[in-house]
């Protein structure tokens, strides 16, 4: 059964069964492998994408729920988003596997809050696990991207 999705500003027809989580549609059908599988139960955040600008765990979201909703993945940021630039400047990634999800959560945070406090950052980022422990640089990069955006 074909489902029509809007991913990164483009309309995409996918063949997946309606209960298929968005993550596997993105990765296996749309060829967008930037969003990662980490836990499959919405616990780690590696699969985070934006649905109408809100961060969602694509591993736990069936495609049938996404009609009319705009999906943005890491690929949709274009590589020049201030959050991505801060990530590169501070060499945030280590293994890098969780970073697409971290970046999407950070993008959503800053879109709604140009000057987040440390507590805001904690609240927005606690759903994204980084086993390499790059947390300190993640926080620093968010602060830097926020300062950059306000400047």
């Amino acid at each position: 059964m074909a489902t029509s999705l809007e991913i990164n500003g483009r309309r995409v027809q996918v063949e997946a069964a309606p209960d298929t989580p968005l993550l596997w549609v993105l990765r296996d059908e749309a060829g967008l492998t930037g969003s990662k599988y980490g836990c499959g139960v919405g616990q780690c955040g590696a699969c985070t994408v934006l649905a109408d600008g809100a961060p969602v765990r694509s591993c736990s979201l069936p495609v049938s729920a996404l009609a009319g909703i705009k999906i943005t993945t890491i690929e949709g940021l274009g590589g020049t988003h201030p959050v991505q630039e801060a990530w590169m400047r501070l060499d945030v990634p280590q293994c890098g596997y969780c970073q697409s999800g971290q970046i999407m959560s950070a993008v959503a945070l800053l879109a709604g809050n140009a000057n987040p406090t440390d507590a805001d950052i904690d609240a927005a980022m606690d759903g994204n696990i980084c086993r390499c422990g790059a947390y300190q640089r993640i926080r620093a990069a968010i602060r830097e991207a926020a300062a950059q955006s306000r400047a």
């Binding site: 990765r27 967008l32 492998t33 930037g34 969003s35 990662k36 599988y37 993945t73 890491i74 690929e75 940021l77 590589g79 991505q84 990530w87 590169m88 060499d91 945030v92 990634p93 890098g96 596997y97 970073q99 697409s100 970046i103």
Partner: peptide, 18 residues
């Protein structure tokens, strides 16, 4: 500095899963 931060900040870095 790291040589892979761009690839790992854009989703382009290639892992086995990809």
């Amino acid at each position: 500095r790291r040589k892979d931060s761009r690839a790992k900040s854009t989703g382009e870095a290639r892992y086995t899963q990809d």
